[in-house]
Design a binder for these strands. Structure first.
Lengths: 150, 150
DNA sequence: CACTTCGTAACTACTATCATTACATGAAAA
DNA sequence: TTTTCATGTAATGATAGTAGTTACGAAGTG
């Protein structure tokens, strides 16, 4: 199956919004994300409920950040998206009667749970401000490279 | 999409095979795994190519372990299955032109790669012998519980 | 040769993600 | 108040991955 790219997409959207001083419409965001305005609305819905973004209708409406960049981590975004399944792999049966399968499940769950905990902790260490700074660095590098080709 | 349960399934199969002194047919394994013989053959194909199991046709044929339990880790099995994608989440674009998206991808890749490395290392620490021992412990507990109900 | 068992291709069912269409709701501008 | 803009959301379709199933060929045993 296709992989879930919502976290990646909304982070992308939020950083573009951070570069603007006015709300961005779903249409504008859809252009940035190379997708459809309805997909944008659907994906951002969870963030709105979590207060991470604010949406307004009508003239001058659109999407704006609901909190300072420093106060939002990638983990917050992940949570606002409903904490989608991280792993593509899983057990055949969740609560098997077979003792062999129980032993297998236990070993796999152990490893996967630890990896999940580590990953989520890592997401919690990166704020939108971190990402915005990284973008600015890349942007400066990009401009420097254009000035001095070769 | 359904989650990939092949690792879980083949581990289950290998431990059942370890409890037998003769090859197990795909039919027998399919009963253990509550699935179809063809699914068993398909899933075990990679393990055969990796030498982790041996298959034989005709009378007395079936599947047998190709290596001692102590010599095979869950990581080996994972590799023999073709190292299927671990994560359900991914980036929208792998090599985006947009610098914002590059910053996002970099941060996410960083976290996911570390989690993947940790998980795979963990899989490498657990051998089939470890799992077999855990099964035996569970089996002993199970029998004790039956003897002394309440 | 008869029988068993694997090897594999082809087809189906199910599920998840994302795209798209259609229309209702709400808010600002004219 | 009417028009216009923009979100909110349901319904539908396209695509892809997993697993189940059928069918048949290949290879080995008795």
């Amino acid at each position: 199956m296709k992989r879930n790219s919502r976290l990646s997409a909304v982070l992308h959207a939020l950083l573009h919004m951070a570069e603007r001083d006015r709300p961005m419409t779903s249409e504008e965001l859809a252009v940035c994300l190379h997708t459809n305005p309805v997909v944008v609305r659907r994906t951002m819905a969870g963030l709105r409920e979590a207060g991470l973004v604010i949406s307004g209708r009508g003239h001058g409406g659109g999407w704006a950040l609901g909190r300072p960049l420093e106060d939002v981590t990638m983990r917050d975004i992940y949570a606002a998206l409903g904490e989608p399944m991280l792993f593509q792999m899983g057990n055949v049966t969740e609560s098997p009667g077979c003792l062999v399968e129980q032993a297998v499940n236990h070993a796999l769950d152990d490893a996967f749970h630890d990896a999940e905990a580590m990953l989520i902790a890592r997401l919690g260490e990166v704020t939108l401000a971190t990402l915005a700074d990284d973008f600015k660095r890349r942007f400066a590098e990009h401009r420097a490279a254009l000035k001095q080709p070769g």
